[in-house]
Amino acid sequence: MGLLTILKKMKQKEKEVRLLMLGLDNAGKTTILKKFNGEDISTISPTLGFNIKTLEHRGFKLNVWDVGGQKSLRSYWRNYFESTDGLIWVVDSADRRRLLDCKQELHSLLLEERLAGATLLVFANKQDLPGSLPADDIRQTLELDDIKTHHWLIIGCSAVTGDNLLQGIDWLVSDIASRIFTMD
């Protein structure tokens, strides 16, 4: 109990939040990160390794870890689980063929003990494309309603236009804040 109080206080002082962004390759993780940070998104290459960005948002310091989603990199995801406050799962809403892969990867992540305390935000990305599935269909396909172990939310967004990115992150940060920081 004592240790938890100290940890809470330390975190509160810095208001620092660690977010881990994962998803299949080509989901748009790096694009979301760069768009959110106001950088050019037209030259993004498939992530070989990972990107870290520290963003200031609503008085919080967000450390966002964007890890590549290629098959050969997925086994390294586990190296980033430690002390994650929020998990951002990015889905390519237009890639119908791999939605089942996407579901499996997500559900196996949620069994991870080190992610047990993390809030889950699912970004149904690429909503700007005419062929994309609405967030509601993605919710069903990924069987999100079966998740009882984590706080979660799915939100349709577009990294290209920037739609709903802020709303998603806002929800994630406030959910984490209400768990970790004593609200002022």
């Binding site: 119908r96 063929r97 269909d137 069903q140 396909t141 069987e143 309603d145 079966d146």
Partner: peptide, 18 residues
């Protein structure tokens, strides 16, 4: 959505196709 209430999610068949 209504169908989904009783039982695990049923994915519409053509949803996952190009």
């Amino acid at each position: 959505v209504v169908e989904e209430v009783d039982g695990p999610a049923k994915i519409p068949k053509d949803l996952l196709k190009f």
